[in-house]
């Protein structure tokens, strides 16, 4: 059976430098090269966590029975080419997918359209009556859907990240065990 791929990290290799997070931001939201030319905050789709003194990035598993998709009332989450994709244009920011995701892989951030933050036409913020509230939408790892390679995987200086493909992986492991059996 063909299953979705996802990005998996090796906690023994990760040094916690967060380059993967920066690369994720650069791949999705940024056209400029330098830190001074960043016009939005770094909003990565994976997060380097520290537990028991060790670092490891966590990100979306592209679940088969995706709880986020099941929770979305408006059907903004679909599978496209083996990737679970949030349609940031139709998302209404209800946060049901954030609640449903067991890995904390989904977050909210301002919706951007043509490089501009999208605001709500009628909803004003109380603190500042003249400002329209910006629209927040759910976002998560899309396996760099627009590109051939995955930015985080390419950027990691320790090769701690890889794209896990269940079928290839089990084939490779089966081959290893066959070789081991031959050796006996």
């Amino acid at each position: 059976m063909k299953s979705t791929k996802f990005i998996v990290a090796d906690a023994d290799k990760c040094i916690g430098c967060k380059i993967c997070e920066v690369a994720c931001h650069a791949a999705h939201d940024n056209l400029n090269y330098t830190v001074g030319a960043q016009y939005s905050a770094i909003t990565p789709r994976l997060h380097v966590m520290q537990v028991n003194g060790k670092y490891v990035p966590v990100q979306c598993r592209q679940c088969e029975d995706a709880p986020c998709a099941n929770a979305c009332a408006i059907g903004a989450i679909t599978e496209v080419d083996g990737k679970i994709i949030i349609n940031e244009k139709t998302c209404i920011g209800c946060k049901a997918c954030l609640v449903a995701c067991p890995f904390g892989a989904i977050d909210l951030r301002p919706q951007i359209h043509n490089g501009e933050v999208v605001t709500q036409p009628r909803l004003k913020t109380l603190q500042d009556a003249d400002e329209n509230k910006s629209v927040l939408v759910a976002y998560k790892c899309d396996l760099c859907a627009e590109n051939e390679t995955q930015a985080c995987v390419a950027a990691c200086p320790e090769n701690a990240l890889r794209v896990y493909n269940a079928l290839d992986d089990s084939k490779a492991k089966a081959l290893q065990s066959a070789l081991a059996l031959h050796a006996i």
Partner: peptide, 13 residues
């Protein structure tokens, strides 16, 4: 000098 966001762009710069 301007700090490159990504190591991969340093050489290019």
């Amino acid at each position: 000098q301007p700090k490159l966001l990504l190591d991969g762009h340093r050489k290019l710069a």
